[in-house]
Design a protein around this nucleic acid. Sequence first.
DNA 1: CAACATACGGAACATTGTTCCGCTTGCCAA
DNA 2: TTGGCAAGCGGAACAATGTTCCGTATGTTG
Lengths: 202, 202
Amino acid sequence: MPQIDTGSGSPAPRKRADARRNEQNLLDAAAAAFVAAGVDVPVRDIAARAGVGVGTIYRHFPTRADLIVAVYRHQVEACAEAGPALLAAVGSPHTALARWLDQFVDFLVTKHGLAEALRSDDPAFEALHGYFVDRLVPVCAGLLDAAVAAGEIRADTDAYQLLRGVGNLCIGARDDARYDPRRLVQLLVAGLRRRRDEPATR
Amino acid sequence: MPQIDTGSGSPAPRKRADARRNEQNLLDAAAAAFVAAGVDVPVRDIAARAGVGVGTIYRHFPTRADLIVAVYRHQVEACAEAGPALLAAVGSPHTALARWLDQFVDFLVTKHGLAEALRSDDPAFEALHGYFVDRLVPVCAGLLDAAVAAGEIRADTDAYQLLRGVGNLCIGARDDARYDPRRLVQLLVAGLRRRRDEPATR
DNA sequence: CAACATACGGAACATTGTTCCGCTTGCCAA
DNA sequence: TTGGCAAGCGGAACAATGTTCCGTATGTTG
């Protein structure tokens, strides 16, 4: 890639105007398509909505994960920032953890197919998984650590596993009225609690 | 579902010998293919293994679910029968439930892609979901009821939801060394426990 | 052994992801 | 303003896979 340096250390090779316009159109079209048909919506459909050819999608977003990350980045960031905020606002770290996970569940179940994609073994989704893990596992770990420090939960639970588990519980929640992931996540969080006479760690 | 006729009205026109042979070959081939490449293995691969054309597969097993159910029927039955057996053999129903779910998890994680298929919204898997629900939810409900009756857990948990949750937790377990669904199922089961000063029902 | 219904094989079609290349167009310099 | 060129575009083409359909082969029966 040619770098046009404009003074200080600004590695911003300005893209062509039509390219920038198309990228924005694609983001909007993808967001709409995701809502209408889930994150598995055919590439052709997104291209049609954006009024571009499929080649243009692949040029801007080489994998589907890139597109999904771009569409949901803001919301993931918001979720990540809510962790420390809750910890500060709520007295009990265990309660803060429960609330944060609730928020995470809300996010996942409202994004048709996102929880499934997070778990897919399709290499096209690897980057998606990676992004979520990088951004959210540390936040979850912070909440867990605080709860352990407060003596509310046992110290033997891994943030990655917990988050994966919660993500998994959200799969298919939209299509099944009899199934409520929030309830199960509550149970899971309840299961973390230190039993009354247990030592804090083991 | 095959009809077993026992005497009266006989709607059982015996199938041709080659048809019966092919059906068995297909079951064997499918079982091998599932182990080698997961339950999502391409239809053509199964056909090639069995030495038949793809048309023959669709004739005997119209949907993939039919084939999967046929291959795993024995093991699902065994799992279903283990429920009452554990209840009888183990003193605490809550412990029996935990053991039974452990067994269920073992079954799911060793069948590449089965947990995913159970949760898929692909209509081809609807019958699979239905079979598992019909066969295992009552067993799970029996264990839950016994645990409630013994005062070990709260009475507000639905067998279907619990089983769906456990199934979900098993998704992708094979491909991720950092993830252990057994651990999370344990937490979930621990979360069911009645808190010490809580009423038995609410 | 003849006739017929059953069952088979695999070509053909549909859907979707992905690549590739000839053409168009924004951008910059002259 | 205009000429030239690299960036960017569109969509045809290819690949993988599920599913259908029909001409053909074969087991079964009288």
